[in-house]
Design a protein around this nucleic acid. Structure first.
Length: 216
DNA sequence: TGAATGATTTACT
DNA sequence: GTAAATCATTCAA
């Protein structure tokens, strides 16, 4: 669905730092529907966020900052909100997060999937022209590749170009479920800290055995 | 200095 | 459904 004229005018207005300087569970849910914008080369890439996860900090076994672990990699999560936390995993993929909360609260929102709005051809090219356009951006690694987000964006400010968030249309129905791929975190992995736009075909995984829970 | 491993994706049975 | 790809980060020694 294309953006309305009003939504289009918002594309060049980055969300302010105050949006991110709130508890991670709040920010994660409110990221849904907002736009991820990347001005790269002569192209502007825009996609509507439809799937996120919260990584809550020292008490969350699934978070890199579990136990207050502060290393070169996790350092940006201890800083101010609105900064990118991008890390490299499995020897081949980058994952994109935005830091939330106050300083010294090492928490972040993982952006897992989005719906392309503008610059789809550029995304497709970067992804190797897949047949199914959903695979352009329906996973955290795929989204990074489509958007040209690499590890060098770690620590950059997301409250200004070239990479930033903008206001977009909120989902009509939001569902939540356990986070993906963090079973090792035990019962903390079962906390329903994944949120999706229930009506989006770009969500990375369909409802699990028990299914996500509708919350509005 | 070395070994283990991972907030994934892809190809294949 | 399962397995391979592939390397920065982490921690132990």
């Amino acid at each position: 669905m294309p953006l309305s004229k009003n939504e289009f005018t918002n594309i060049h207005k980055p969300l302010p730092r105050e949006f991110f300087a709130r508890p991670v569970l709040t920010v994660a849910k409110e990221c849904l529907g907002n736009l991820l914008v990347h001005e790269i080369g002569n192209t502007t890439l825009v996609a509507r966020i439809v799937e996120v996860e919260a990584y809550r900090g020292p008490l969350d076994r699934a978070a890199h900052s579990f136990g207050g672990r502060r290393t070169e990699r996790t350092e940006v999560m201890f800083g101010q909100a609105g900064i990118a936390y991008v890390f490299f995993v499995y020897g081949m993929h980058c994952l994109f997060n935005v830091v939330t909360g106050n300083r010294n609260e090492p928490q972040a929102v993982l952006i897992r999937a989005a719906e392309p709005q503008y610059g789809q051809a550029s995304m497709s090219s970067r992804r190797g022209h897949p047949k199914d356009i959903r695979t352009l951006t329906n996973g955290p690694g795929r989204l990074c590749q489509a958007f040209g987000i690499d590890r060098f964006y770690n620590g950059t400010d997301l409250c200004r170009p070239p990479l930033y968030f903008a206001q977009g249309p909120a989902p009509r129905v939001i569902e939540q479920s356990p986070r993906i791929g963090v079973d090792y975190a035990g019962t903390w992995a079962e906390r329903p800290w994944r949120w999706i736009d229930a009506e989006s075909p770009f969500v990375s995984r369909r409802p699990g055995p028990k299914g996500p829970r509708q919350i509005g």
